[in-house]
Computed example of a mutant assay.
Amino acid sequence: MKFGAMVCVAALGMGVQPGSGGDRVAPDPGSFGIKAVTRPSQDAVTGFNFSVTIEDVLVKVGDRVVEGQPMVRADATDAEASVELQTLRAESELDVQAAEKALELSQVEFQATKQAYEGGGGSTIELDRARLAAENAKLSLEASRQRMREQQIQLRQLQARLDEHTVTSPFDGIVESVLVDVGDTVRESDPIVRVVSIDPLWIDVATPTEQTLGLKPGDPAWALVRIGDEARLLRATIVGISPVADSVTGARRVRVEASNPDALPAGLQVFVRFTQPDQTWMDYFESQDASGAGDTG
């Protein structure tokens, strides 16, 4: 279950505690939970599988992209010509048609030779030669059809190679960086475009093992996100717990997923807890809701 609500908490630090009549200031965020950092739930750096020259850059930093959307195109003149030539070969039926006519002719000749033989006008060797010629023509037709299928497979291979001249987005997300310009020559596996998905956000929390023993995927979590002097409460869900504890720190990694409809950037400091915030925090959040500064989800 994912929770999308965000509660604006206002200024961080020590101040007037909940229950006073004036503006309420958040308690010390360090008392909220375990310190961690938000990160993209998906993060990919794309590139080409071979050396190319950049022909067109179709996106810029901050653009939203969808899965499969073209982002960068490379010069594909040679690949396009190869596909065009192979298309002619793969779609041509001339060889098959010629083989069909050859088979038809050999069958006519075999029947004529057979009739002549049965009428006493031909020899056994002539009949066998005509029969084998017909059988060979049939095999030639099958070979022509197989060559045509092979040409079609080669066309698909060349088309796939041509498609590799365009870098596309691997998932729905946001362009984080564009590392090339038109005219650049890039080598195999050079980074081209980085795409991230920040809705939802992931948070990997190094949690003391004793606190993880009662947790399971699907359990709720609460994350206090720091944004300068402001903080927001993200209601989240546990999506994974590492089966291995760190022998030095005694902690296990608990991955938390938080819906992010307001597109908060990844990389922010957060404090995460796996039990409902105590009364001090709940009173504070309720005061923010009452003042209209709270729920933005």
Rank of each mutant, 00 (worst) to 15 (best):
P243M: 13
L264G: 01
G267A: 11
R253T: 15
D229A: 13
D262Q: 14
V205D: 01
D262M: 14
V239K: 07
A251Y: 07
D278V: 10
T237V: 08
A223E: 01
G173H: 03
I174V: 14
W222G: 00
L234G: 02
P243L: 15
M282F: 06
D199Q: 04
D204M: 04
V182T: 14
W202M: 03
D181M: 09
P217A: 15
T166Q: 09
S259N: 10
D172Q: 05
E210D: 14
F285S: 05
V178S: 03
S259M: 15
S247R: 15
R273K: 12
D283G: 07
T212P: 00
A206W: 07
D229W: 08
P243H: 13
T168G: 04
R232C: 01
T168A: 12
V193W: 07
V254L: 08
Y284P: 00
V248E: 15
E257R: 01
A258I: 02
T275G: 08
F271D: 03
V225D: 00
K216P: 00
V175W: 07
Y284M: 14
V270W: 01
V225I: 11
T275L: 13
E188M: 10
A206D: 10
P191Y: 11
I241S: 05
P200M: 08
W202R: 07
F171W: 08
D283H: 10
R226G: 00
L224D: 01
A258N: 05
L234W: 03
G250T: 12
I198D: 02
V272E: 03
L224W: 12
A258E: 02
E230D: 14
